[in-house]
Each structure stands twice: as C-alpha cells, then as structure tokens.
Design a protein around this nucleic acid. Structure first.
Lengths: 195, 195
DNA sequence: CTTTCAACTGAACATCTGTTCAGTTAATGT
DNA sequence: ACATTAACTGAACAGATGTTCAGTTGAAAG
C-alpha cells in the first residue's frame, strides 16, 4: 500500500471531526455546510466523504463518541463508598467532565432533533444509561436513610439539569476555579437530596 | 380604507407566528424555510413579508414576546411575603408558566445563537432581568437568615436550570399533575437553599 | 525508475435558500 | 356601480445546499 506512513488520513480525519464539532457547536448543525467544514480543514468539500458517509453520520458519531466517553469515565468512579460520598464524587465529576468538553456537551443537548430516528434512539439510550447510574446512587442513599426524595428519577433529572447549568456561565480563567464551583454546587446538591 | 373589517391580516398574522413557533421549536430556526412556514399557513412565501420584514425578525419577535410575557407575569407575584413564601411562589410559577409554553421556552433557549448581536443583547437583558428578580428573593432570604448560600447569583442559575429541566420530561396527561411536580421541585429547591 | 493507489480536486447534479416585486383578486367605503 | 387598496400570487433573483465522481497528484513500495 502506497502512502501508508506519511498518509494524511490520520491527520485529516481528526481535523474534520474537530472542525465539525467547533462549527456545529457555534452555529448549529443545520447552519453549517460541508463546504464550510472543509474550508476550516483546508480541503475541498468532496474530500470530507473519505471520512464520513454523510453529514448526518458526522453529527451522530460526534455525539456517540461523547456519550460513550462520558459513560466510560463515569464507570470509573468509586462504587464501594456510601451514597453521600458517591454523590459528591459524581457531582464533581459531572462538572469537571462537562466543563472540559463544552462543544461536545452543547451539541449533545442541542442537536438531538437533527438526528434520524434510529440515531436518536441510540443517543437517548446512552443518556438513559447515564441517568440510571445517578438514580442508583440516589436509591442507595434512600435505602441508607441519608437521602429523602419524593421521586429518585425526577431527582436525578433535577440534579443533572442543575449541574448542566454550569456550562452556560462558567469560563476557565474567571473569578472561580472549577474546584470552587464544585464546592458550591455540591453544597446545594447535598442539601437538596438530604433527609 | 377598504378591507379593514373582514381583513385577513388579523388572522394570517397570528397564524404566521404560530406556524413559525411550532416549526422553529421542532426543527430549529436554520432548518425551517420561509416556504415551509408559508405552506403551514396556506399561503405563498412572499405573503409572509406582509407580517415580518425578514426571517430573523420573525424569530426575534417570538423570543421577545415570550420574555416580556414571562417578566410581566413574574412581576405579578406577591412581593410582600417572606423569602420562603416568595421562593415557593416563584418555583410554582416558573414551572407552570414554562410548561404551558414549551415551544416558546425551547426556542428562547436554543435559538440564541441565531440572533444578530443586537437582537441577542435585547433577549439577554430580558433574561438578566428575570434572573435579577430571583436573585433578589434569595438575597432577601439570606438577610432574613432563612437561606444559606455560598453565592446568590450562582444559586439563581442553579435553581432556574433545575426548574427548566421539567420541560424536558413533563407531559400533561402523564402520571403526575403539574401541582405534584411543583411539590417535588419545591421540596428540592427549599432544601437546597435552606440554612 | 516505475508502479501503485490513498488522498484529494474541481466541476457537475438537482434542488433549495431568503427576499423582491409587478400584477391579480376581492372585499370594502362611497 | 365604482373606485380603492389590503392581501396575496407566482415568477424571478443570485447564490447556497449535500453529494457524486472522473481525473490528478505525489509519496512510498518494489
């Protein structure tokens, strides 16, 4: 095979995904053309089709990769501890992970409606798996008597929605460090679910 | 003036806005063409320009109207009571108002990036005014000693983000009434901010 | 040096985009 | 009955859209 080493595909592929990610997050999937992504990479639009079968798949794979990364990192959190410690670890993890990937997070929440029904179902099930993990922590706390919750499923969504809000205002280099933001939110999360 | 009474403009105008609202919420501003809006109304695309100078203004006015309605209704809430009662009233109001206007809410949060800078500034300042109202309640509670908050501004955003989450899952006719949802969220909000 | 072929170009495809506007229609006031 | 004119049509505008593909390029394998 000619051009195996020194091939550009190892470089261009990631650059295509990076450009698509950036542009989809800034302007929205529907507002970004394949030509614009190609321009960002420095190639013609046709060349993109060496790296994705179509625009829809490009979006879907960005979202799928993001959700799988999220689940993989979430699974690494300590599961032996008591519910309070686990919820604190989750709270800080969620804030850290999401604030380190603002573009991915934005797309994963905003572009769901631009997925085909099949692709949507895949992303939704990944999101459901993440929620399940949080709900499990809350139910453990209910069983231990540490948490008092009218509904663990709704509390899960409430906590995640609250933490997602961080990404709308937090900017690294601002007055607060991520650790301080974690402290503030953990204080509110802890109280919100406590007995 | 001919065709004053019996004119269609009193009917078509609202129908244009309603169709745009529905379609923007479902598919996104960039993905909806003027021809598609016109089709929904039963009119040719050119006729839309009797009701809006351009597509951008159509979006902007939907968002502006929504935010002004929100602020007007928010201003009607009792302001004489103690902070706890005011925060409860706000919590239930926010849930009620937002769940009664899912399309408006969705657009107001999702289509900010499709506004021109001037229009964006207007909507942002309306949103800021709403946040200010909530922050005032939280600061009153801090002064009264009822609430313990590391940061009233951040707590405002946390509470609003949490309550906004309701719209992603609540459907009228489901297992819970809006009143029950209000109870569940008020329980969490109250505990989250309490001393 | 020659062959190979992954990576890419550039043009073409049919279709859609927001917006404008001369012209048509029909309900209204006189 | 007639003139007025708000409301709307339908065609046109210049350009953008996702996607395909025959052909070019140039680095590496033999």
């Amino acid at each position: 095979m000619a051009r195996t080493a020194g091939s550009h595909s190892d470089i261009t592929g990631p650059r295509v995904r990076a450009a698509a990610l950036r542009l989809f997050a800034r302007h929205g999937f529907a507002a970004v053309s394949m030509r614009r992504i190609a321009g960002e990479v420095g190639v013609q639009a046709g060349a993109l089709y060496n790296y994705t079968p179509d625009k829809q798949t490009l979006l879907f794979e960005l979202m799928q990769t993001h959700m799988e990364d999220l689940l993989a990192d979430f699974a690494r959190l300590e599961s032996g501890a008591d519910a309070l410690a686990r919820l604190e670890a989750f709270t800080r993890f969620h804030i850290d992970f999401h604030s380190s990937r603002p573009d991915e997070v934005f797309i994963a929440y905003m572009e769901l409606r631009n997925l085909t029904p099949e692709n949507f179902a895949v992303i939704e099930s990944l999101r459901g798996a993440y929620e399940d993990g949080v709900t499990a922590i809350l139910r453990q706390g209910q069983a231990e008597g540490t948490f008092a919750l009218p509904d663990a499923r709704i509390a899960t969504r409430a906590v995640i929605a609250m933490l997602n809000g961080v990404n709308t205002w937090f900017r690294a280099g601002g007055p607060l460090t991520l650790g301080q933001v974690g402290d503030i939110y953990w204080d509110m999360v802890r109280k919100a679910v406590s007995a």
